[in-house]
Amino acid sequence: TTVEVQGVEYRFDNPEEAEKFAKKMAKSLNLRVELHGNKWRVE
């Protein structure tokens, strides 16, 4: 599972970890998070 934060990609073996990371990043950067296939995008 991939998390893309403002163009930078982070890879996770565990989808739940990816989701937690994406939501945490979105909250700290005041952005929103969307799931596209198996990629979380924070923008």
Rank of each mutant, 00 (worst) to 15 (best):
E34K: 10
A18W: 01
E34S: 14
Q6D: 08
Y10M: 03
Q6F: 14
L35Y: 14
K39I: 14
V33K: 02
E19C: 15
M25G: 01
E16Q: 11
V3E: 00
A18K: 00
A18D: 00
W40I: 06
E9F: 09
S28G: 07
F21H: 02
K23N: 08
E34V: 14
K20M: 12
E9D: 06
A22Y: 02
N30V: 04
S28L: 15
V33C: 15
E43R: 10
A26W: 01
Q6L: 15
D13G: 09
R41I: 15
E4A: 09
L35C: 15
K39E: 05
L35K: 13
V42W: 02
A18F: 01
F21P: 00
A18P: 00
K20Q: 12
S28K: 14
H36W: 09
Q6G: 09
E16K: 10
R32G: 09
E17V: 08
R41L: 14
E34W: 13
R32S: 11
V42P: 04
D13Q: 10
E9T: 13
L29T: 03
E19A: 08
E17F: 05
M25T: 07
V33Y: 13
V5R: 01
P15M: 08
V42T: 05
K20D: 12
M25K: 05
L35D: 03
K24P: 00
N14A: 08
K20I: 13
P15H: 07
V3N: 00
Y10S: 02
T1H: 14
W40V: 04
E16N: 09
G37K: 06
N14P: 01
Y10P: 00
K39L: 09
A22E: 01
K23E: 06
T2W: 14
A18S: 02
K39F: 06
L35A: 06
Q6E: 11
G7E: 03
G37W: 03
G37H: 06
E19T: 04
F21Q: 01
R11M: 11
N30P: 01
K27H: 13
L29P: 03
K27S: 13
R11H: 13
E4L: 13
E4Y: 13
K27C: 15
K20P: 02
H36A: 09
L35R: 13
R32N: 10
R32M: 11
G7R: 03
R11Y: 14
E9H: 07
R32V: 11
A22D: 00
E43N: 12
T2V: 14
T1S: 10
K27M: 13
F21T: 01
R32H: 12
P15L: 05
K23Y: 14
R11K: 13
R32C: 15
A22T: 01
K20A: 13
A22C: 06
Q6R: 11
L31F: 07
Y10N: 01
T1Q: 10
L29Q: 04
W40N: 02
Y10L: 04
V42E: 04
T1G: 07
F21C: 13
E9N: 07
E19H: 06
V8P: 00
P15I: 06
E43H: 12
N14K: 09
V42R: 00
N14Q: 08
N38T: 08
N30I: 03
F12S: 00
R32Q: 11
F21D: 00
Y10A: 01
T1F: 15
R11E: 10
E16T: 10
W40K: 02
T1K: 06
E16I: 12
V42D: 04
D13M: 10
W40P: 02
T2G: 04
E17R: 06
A22W: 02
M25W: 07
K39C: 15
E43Y: 15
N14H: 09
E4R: 07
W40C: 05
N38I: 04
M25V: 10
K23P: 00
R32A: 10
V8D: 04
W40E: 02
V8A: 06
T1R: 09
K39S: 09
D13C: 15
S28C: 15
F21R: 00
L35H: 10
G37N: 10
A22S: 02
F21I: 01
N14Y: 08
D13P: 08
V8L: 09
G7L: 03
E17L: 09
K39Y: 07
T2F: 14
M25I: 12
T1L: 10
E34C: 15
K23R: 14
L31C: 15
L29R: 04
R41P: 02
P15Q: 07
A18C: 10
E43K: 09
K39R: 14
V33S: 06
V3A: 03
R41G: 04
A18Q: 00
Q6Y: 12
A22M: 02
G37V: 04
H36E: 10
A18I: 01
L31E: 03
E43T: 13
G7P: 00
R11A: 09
Y10H: 05
V33H: 05
Y10W: 09
V42A: 04
D13E: 12
E17T: 08
W40G: 02
S28P: 03
K20W: 11
F12C: 14
N30D: 07
E43W: 14
D13H: 09
N30E: 05
E16Y: 11
F12A: 00
E9M: 11
S28D: 14
K27P: 01
K39W: 05
E19M: 09
E4W: 12
L29E: 03
L31A: 13
A26T: 01
Q6K: 09
V8K: 11
R41K: 12
K24Y: 14
F12L: 03
M25Q: 05
H36C: 15
L29W: 03
E16A: 12
W40A: 02
E16F: 11
Q6N: 11
E4H: 09
V3P: 00
L31P: 01
E9A: 08
L35V: 08
F21G: 00
K20H: 11
V5S: 03
E19V: 05
H36S: 10
E43I: 14
V8Y: 08
Y10K: 02
F21S: 00
D13L: 09
N38P: 06
V5A: 04
F12Y: 04
M25S: 04
N30T: 03
N38G: 13
N14V: 08
A22Q: 00
L31H: 05
A18L: 01
V8Q: 08
E9C: 15
V3S: 00
E19W: 10
G7D: 04
S28N: 11
V3W: 02
A26P: 01
T2A: 09
A18R: 00
D13N: 10
V33F: 13
V5P: 00
V8I: 12
K23D: 05
G7K: 03
K23A: 07
R41V: 15
K27N: 11
K27E: 14
K23W: 11
T1D: 07
N30Q: 07
K24G: 10
T2D: 05
E17N: 06
K20L: 13
E43S: 13
N38A: 06
K27F: 11
W40Y: 07
T1P: 12
L31G: 13
T1E: 05
R32P: 10
Q6S: 08
K39A: 08
A26S: 05
F12T: 00
T1M: 13
K24A: 14
E4V: 14
R11N: 10
M25F: 04
L35I: 07
M25D: 00
R41D: 03
S28M: 15
V3T: 01
K24H: 14
L29D: 03
A18E: 00
E16L: 12
P15T: 07
A26H: 01
N38D: 11
Y10V: 04
Y10F: 11
V3Q: 01
K27T: 12
E4M: 11
V42G: 03
R11I: 12
E34A: 11
E43C: 15
M25N: 03
V8M: 10
E16M: 11
N38V: 05
R11F: 14
V5L: 10
E34N: 09
K23V: 09
L35P: 03
K39N: 09
K20C: 15
A26M: 03
L31D: 02
V42K: 01
Y10Q: 02
G7W: 04
K23H: 12
N38F: 05
A18M: 01
E43G: 15
T2R: 08
G7H: 05
K20S: 11
G37Y: 04
P15C: 15
N14I: 08
K20N: 10
E4P: 01
V3H: 00
V5W: 06
F12G: 00
E17M: 08
V33L: 12
R32D: 06
F12E: 00
K23G: 04
F12I: 01
S28W: 13
R32L: 09
R41W: 12
R11L: 12
R11V: 13
K20F: 10
V5Y: 08
Y10G: 00
R32I: 10
V8N: 06
G7F: 04
A22F: 02
E19R: 08
K24N: 12
V42S: 04
V8C: 15
A22I: 04
K39T: 14
V33T: 06
H36F: 11
K24W: 14
G37C: 15
R41N: 05
V33G: 03
N30C: 15
S28T: 13
E34T: 14
K39H: 09
G37T: 04
E17D: 12
P15N: 07
